[in-house]
Simulated assay, not measured.
Amino acid sequence: MTDQNPPAFNPHAFSEQERAAVYRAIAERRDMRHFSGGTVAPELLARLLNAAHQAPSVGLMQPWRFIHITSLELRRQIRALVEAERLRTAEALGERSSEFMRLKVEGIEDSAELLVACLMDGREAHIFGRRTLPQMDLASLSCAIQNLWLAARAEGLGMGWVSLFDPQALAALLGLPEGAEPLAVLCLGPVSEFYPRPMLVEEGWAQERPLADMLFENHWGEPS
């Protein structure tokens, strides 16, 4: 029996194979903590950063700034900041402290490349789209990080977003100007394998919730 109502042709759609690749990158992206060393070719790193730079941004403010960490001493200092915050987080978690301390939370000294993603200074001058929602600068940077993440997965590289650090301490370490803020320490590089599910699910720390729990219709709390 043939379909009586085939979908209308959309001239703007990618091919079926291209669409499948996009959805595969989204589905298989993982927040990686385990890296296998190796290297990332300079031209590949440039391609990934250009993908990040093509992200949408509110008012075209492009608030992202990326610091490429090439100093081994800086890597060690950044890892020390993360370790200090890991201990403070464990203390704040109370009864889950021991469970948390067993988790691997970063790959700073193991990954081939290390980047710090920051919000630029002078963001208050950008009002378009931010007058009532100033946090849209953070949303724009997050889009750039997601672009980088998906492009890395398509290239077969792992990436991990580390947010366990004191932002003021990291800003001072990296010489950020007043008003600029570090948002993410990004570990990037080859991995021996990708986690089949998010690592925190694999480790029993948390469980994913279905989309149905988060989708409402017309008003908050009304099931779609």
Results as ranks from 00 to 15, higher is better:
residue 210 P to W: 00
residue 63 P to E: 01
residue 10 N to K: 09
residue 175 G to P: 07
residue 121 D to Q: 13
residue 14 F to P: 11
residue 100 F to Y: 10
residue 52 A to F: 01
residue 145 I to L: 10
residue 85 E to Q: 14
residue 59 G to A: 08
residue 144 A to L: 05
residue 39 T to H: 12
residue 163 S to P: 03
residue 162 V to H: 04
residue 170 L to A: 03
residue 171 A to W: 00
residue 2 T to R: 11
residue 214 M to N: 15
residue 195 Y to A: 14
residue 179 G to T: 05
residue 51 A to P: 04
residue 47 R to P: 09
residue 1 M to Q: 09
residue 26 I to Y: 08
residue 24 R to S: 11
residue 34 H to M: 11
residue 7 P to K: 05
residue 121 D to E: 13
residue 182 P to E: 03
residue 84 A to V: 08
residue 41 A to E: 08
residue 9 F to E: 10
residue 212 A to T: 13
residue 176 L to F: 02
residue 190 P to T: 02
residue 41 A to K: 10
residue 5 N to P: 13
residue 191 V to W: 03
residue 211 L to H: 11
residue 201 V to G: 08
residue 13 A to T: 01
residue 125 A to E: 12
residue 82 V to S: 13
residue 198 P to F: 00
residue 111 S to K: 06
residue 44 L to Q: 07
residue 55 A to Q: 06
residue 30 R to F: 01
residue 135 Q to W: 11
residue 143 C to M: 09
residue 61 M to S: 13
residue 79 R to K: 11
residue 147 N to C: 05
residue 200 L to V: 06
residue 167 P to H: 06
residue 104 K to L: 12
residue 125 A to Q: 13
residue 5 N to A: 09
residue 60 L to K: 15
residue 54 Q to V: 09
residue 38 G to N: 03
residue 156 G to S: 05
residue 128 F to P: 15
residue 3 D to T: 06
residue 83 E to R: 14
residue 106 E to D: 08
residue 168 Q to M: 08
residue 109 E to G: 12
residue 223 P to F: 04
residue 4 Q to K: 12
residue 12 H to A: 10
residue 145 I to W: 08
residue 214 M to W: 14
residue 139 A to S: 12
residue 124 E to W: 12
residue 36 S to A: 06
residue 108 I to R: 07
residue 72 L to Q: 14
residue 150 L to E: 00
residue 2 T to K: 14
residue 42 P to G: 00
residue 189 G to D: 03
residue 100 F to S: 09
residue 73 E to K: 15
residue 24 R to W: 10
residue 120 M to R: 15
residue 38 G to T: 01
residue 206 A to T: 03
residue 1 M to K: 11
residue 22 V to M: 09
residue 190 P to R: 01
residue 116 V to E: 02
residue 11 P to L: 06
residue 194 F to H: 05
residue 218 N to H: 10
residue 159 M to H: 04
residue 21 A to C: 07
residue 195 Y to T: 14
residue 46 A to I: 02
residue 39 T to D: 10
residue 194 F to I: 05
residue 171 A to Y: 02
residue 76 R to Y: 14
residue 153 R to P: 07
residue 157 L to M: 01
residue 160 G to V: 01
residue 212 A to V: 11
residue 111 S to I: 05
residue 160 G to E: 00
residue 51 A to M: 06
residue 85 E to Y: 13
residue 5 N to H: 14
residue 133 L to Q: 15
residue 69 I to L: 03
residue 137 D to E: 13
residue 218 N to I: 06
residue 99 E to C: 14
residue 106 E to H: 08
residue 52 A to D: 00
residue 185 V to A: 02
residue 196 P to W: 00
residue 198 P to V: 00
residue 84 A to F: 13
residue 49 L to C: 09
residue 40 V to D: 01
residue 116 V to P: 02
residue 174 L to I: 06
residue 74 L to E: 13
